[in-house]
Design a protein around this nucleic acid. Structure first.
Lengths: 212, 212, 212, 212
DNA sequence: AATGAATGAGGATTCATTCAT
DNA sequence: AATGAATGAATCCTCATTCAT
């Protein structure tokens, strides 16, 4: 066996691998500590590359965190797509509850992404970090996705109604994630209730007839 | 001879006023930037008192932010009490929708408190700041309050069901706050939908009969 | 014997003395190495105070160097005034050659100030350091002083002529300073030639009659 | 098979062109910001070549800046020669004023060179950069040139007198350059006055008879 | 009850330079 | 003839905190 692993890496100069190592480290730390809490030094230590090397790969901290968001969102979308492929040809109602189950799955799979994203969302600082804007964009996309989804499930609903349900769904989802982080509630359970609730709201408003 | 007014005031007097000025400044900044983003220096500048004075009033940054949470929560409870006094003697249903309206009102009134609290909740750092624990405690209290509340509205429900609805309500509330911060949705509207949704969930599960 | 000198200083907290120590150190280093060459660390080492203390006394490097220019110029003016007091009641011609001798004296006395000032003057960077503007201002003042001076010596001359001679005198002075720094020429000698030259120019243009 | 043109050019070709691009970039930046202010990175960006390529062409920063001085001085001499060719066969007096005019022209043509050179001249750092020595050498050469020149114009003068006039001329020239940079004075005007002044000094000392 | 001054540790970022390819 | 990647040292500056007054 044998290869003298340790020293090797430094000379090898593998840009792609280094970039990934940095992003991995940054994603982990930023997911736990937020933007300000993510020091370049910490990323350097966790990734094994000197701080100055981070600056070869990323212009500055801002762009590093933005890149973290971008990559995480790609992964998120990718995971979503994999799940979506499984349920072509379902009835609306089946699709709905399946979609809710999948959403719960997503939250559980990407806690760092969501934690960081929500922290960025909540921050209100003079100069918005690029990362915040990027996450904002993913929220807009997610809402659009939700609208399309609900549009297919509740075919008779108008735009305004769909909008209300979409917002409620996203809000419920974010809130459940926080409750899971904070009080340790079970996300899957929470989503089941949420599904009923959204459906129930539609019924209660008289938008749909109560059969399931 | 009469006290040389001008000089005097700053030196001798108002420990209380200074403390308040510091808390005000810290609450504002922490509400915008979170724990790490709140530097003692920034608080010093905004409050007009030297940094060393902050350390006369508070042991360290940790306790300062904790004190911010404590004070904000007192104010929050106080506001809640004022609202609650208005609706003794309401029917359960009236109480419920009134409660929901009041909750929306609260979120709008205390954005800094919630922003800071949620940021603290999301952070996951090695040594938990005292402030986080304090906010955690307020969440526990809020949940208890919600349980009592829902218990009175849905008198027939068991503990497990109440719990589910309470969690959903809190989650929806947090999520709506975030949506308001991020996408600018209208909180009052959101809460109306949320009220319907929670009710609808109860109906959908067959816990209550659908009459309103 | 007795006072344990070394440690004492730190606790003593003598703001004024520290500020002076920092300015002394910065003046020396900046006078030798220019703006960029003056690292806060070097100033810290030379002054004996930690780098962070420098930032208690000065907002940033820019303001530190600007303060160096300001203080040096005060000293320069002060020295000038002391010299000027000596030669009230001189004939114009005596005044002129005395003034020239004094100027030479000044250059010799304040080499750090001039070196730094000229380096700042020559630099052409995107964001002008405050220090550069401050030195610029001293040049404007010096030119005004020169105009008044030459106006008294060559009473018959018009503004335009005075201006030309003033510019030439300042240029000669700066150039001689550089020649002294670079080739080690004798400044006093240089100024004697310069005095003759300025006078000679005036004669040559026919502005004054050649008698001295 | 024929060489895949496009790729090729950048890799194989023009070492000379790259070297020139680097020198151009370095000359520009160093002429504006001085030795310390010229970062390899900035030169890399302005020249369009990676930093490591600069090290292929030049041993280090020191030699790069030295090369800048060398090349600029060659250009300077070249320009001088072109001008000089125009005025063989002039009377001493004509030659003198023509020479002065030409000098003004030179300063206007090579501001970066002079700015950098004078900045280097003024700096006083522990380890003298090679570039400083190179510029020093050009000054020595320029002085020698001036002596020869003045020797031809004022044929009767002794070495000591020539020296004094040469030093004054160089000083005036440097000073006028600075005044142009700082106060925006007109260099050509300044040199006319300077010419009169040097001549006037010679007359005033009784070294030459006043006829022109 | 307060504060001017100080301070070590750490923040992000840039530096000149090297080296394997 | 060139360059992508790396790197240790240094850059300026901010941090939380302390302490003598």
């Amino acid at each position: 066996m044998a290869q003298p692993a340790s020293r090797q890496r430094k000379t090898r100069a593998n840009g792609v691998a280094s970039r990934i190592a940095i992003l991995d480290a940054a994603a982990h730390i930023a997911g736990e500590r937020g933007y300000e809490g993510t020091s370049i030094n910490a990323v350097s230590e966790r990734s094994g590359l000197p701080a100055s090397s981070i600056y070869w790969h990323f212009k500055n901290k801002d762009e590093l965190i933005a890149a973290v968001i971008d990559r995480s969102y790609s992964d998120w979308i990718e995971a979503l797509r994999r799940l979506a492929d499984q349920d072509s040809e379902l009835s609306p109602v089946e699709m709905y509850s399946s979609g809710m189950r999948q959403s719960a799955e997503q939250l559980i799979q990407f806690p760092d992404f969501l934690r960081l994203g929500l922290m960025l969302t909540l921050e209100r600082r003079p100069s918005e970090p690029t990362a915040r804007q990027r996450f904002q964009a993913t929220r807009v996309e997610t809402l659009a996705r939700l609208r399309r989804y609900l549009g297919r499930v509740f075919e008779s609903l108008g735009e305004a109604e769909i909008e209300q349900l979409a917002v409620l769904t996203l809000a419920g989802s974010d809130g459940l994630f926080i409750a899971a982080e904070s009080e340790g509630i079970d996300i899957a359970d929470g989503f089941e209730t949420l599904a009923r609730a959204v459906m129930g709201a539609a019924v209660s408003f008289g938008w749909v007839r109560p059969n399931s």
